[in-house]
C-alpha cells in the first residue's frame, strides 16, 4: 500500500507549498518572502550560514514557530491558528532535532511507541512490533530496553529518527541532525538518513554536511539573511563552472 501511495503522489501536486512567508522575532525579520514548493518524495537540502533562518524555516512547517505573514500549506492543509489543522499536520510530519530531544525518563522502545499509541491509537503490540522493525532499520535493535542516557550520541539520534518514523509521517524534517555529534558518529546517522531518502521519503534537511548534501539532495537551497538566495540541483550547485550569486560563491569558497 505504501508503494502504491507514493507512486500516486509522485509527480502529483506539491506536498508543501509556502507563499510569501514572512516571520519576525520582535523587530528582527528572520524570514523574508519565502516562496517554495516541495514535491512528494523530493529531498530538499537547506544550507546557509548560521542565523540565515534555515532552522526557523523548517520549524515553521510543523508550527514549532509561527509565521506571521503569507501561507503554508502542508499535505493540503493550511497552517493557521486552527488547532485541529496544526494537530493534523504534526501527525503527518516527523522531526529530528539537533539535540535529539529523546524523552530521558522513557526507555528507547517507549520513546518510539508513545506517540503511535497516544496519537494514532495503535495497540501496544502493534506499536512495539513497528518500533522493533524501525530499530532494525536504524541498526540498534539491541538497545530497545535501555534508557537514552545509556546510549551514545549517534545511537540517540538514530532512536530519534526511528521515533519520528514510527508515526509513519509523509514528510520528515531534519534540523541539523549531525551538528551535535562526535565526528565518528556522524556517518552512522547520515547513512540512516541517506537510506531513508532513497526509500522515497519527502525530506527537508538543514545541514552543514556538504558531501552528504551533494550525495542525497534532489535540490539544494541556499539561504542568507532570511531569504532564499539560490536554489538548484546539487550538480549545478557545487559545480565551479556555473555562475553563482556572489553571496553563494562567498559561502562556498569558505567551506569547500
Amino acid at each position: 500500500m505504501e508503494d502504491g501511495n507514493k507512486q500516486v503522489m509522485a509527480g502529483d501536486e506539491p506536498i508543501i507549498i509556502c507563499r510569501d512567508m514572512n516571520k519576525w522575532f520582535g523587530e528582527f525579520h528572520v524570514l523574508r518572502n519565502i516562496s517554495i514548493e516541495v514535491m512528494p518524495q523530493e529531498v530538499l537540502v537547506i544550507i546557509g550560514p548560521s542565523g540565515s533562518g534555515k532552522s526557523t524555516f523548517i520549524r515553521c512547517i510543523n508550527r514549532l514557530e509561527e509565521h506571521q505573514d503569507g501561507q503554508i500549506i502542508v499535505d493540503g492543509i493550511e497552517l493557521s491558528h486552527d488547532v485541529q489543522n496544526i494537530a493534523d499536520i504534526r501527525r503527518e510530519t516527523g522531526m529530528v532535532f539537533q539535540q535529539f530531544n529523546l524523552f530521558p525518563h522513557l526507555t528507547v522502545i517507549d520513546n518510539i511507541t508513545l506517540a503511535p499509541m497516544k496519537v494514532r491509537h495503535w495497540a501496544r503490540d502493534k506499536a512495539e512490533q513497528r518500533a522493533m522493525e524501525l530499530l532494525e532499520r536504524v541498526e540498534i535493535p539491541e538497545q530497545a530496553f535501555k534508557y537514552p542516557g545509556q546510549l551514545s550520541g549517534g545511537q540517540q539520534q538514530r532512536v530519534a529518527i526511528a521515533r519520528a518514523l514510527a508515526m509513519e509521517p509523509k514528510i520528515m524534517l531534519f534540523d541539523e541532525p549531525t551538528s551535535a555529534l562526535d565526528p565518528e558518529m556522524i556517518k552512522e546517522v547520515l547513512d540512516v538518513i541517506e537510506e531513508l531518502a532513497r526509500s522515497g521519503m519527502t525530506m527537508l534537511v538543514v545541514t552543514h554536511e556538504m558531501g552528504f548534501a551533494r550525495e542525497v539532495a534532489d535540490r539544494i537551497i541556499f539561504m542568507d539573511m532570511g531569504r532564499i538566495v539560490e536554489q538548484g540541483p546539487p550538480e549545478n550547485f557545487f559545480s565551479p563552472e556555473i555562475e553563482h550569486h556572489p553571496r553563494t560563491q562567498e559561502f562556498l569558497d569558505q567551506i569547500l
Binding site: 510543523n62 508550527r63 514549532l64 494537530a87 504534526r90 501527525r91 510530519t93 516527523g94 522531526m95 532535532f97 530531544n101 529523546l102 524523552f103 508513545l114 506517540a115 497516544k118 496519537v119 521515533r163 519520528a164 508515526m167 524534517l173
Partner: peptide, 9 residues
C-alpha cells in the same frame, strides 16, 4: 518541541 512535533495533545 519533541512532544509537539510528534503531535501529542
Amino acid at each position: 518541541e519533541a512532544s509537539r512535533a510528534l503531535g501529542l495533545s
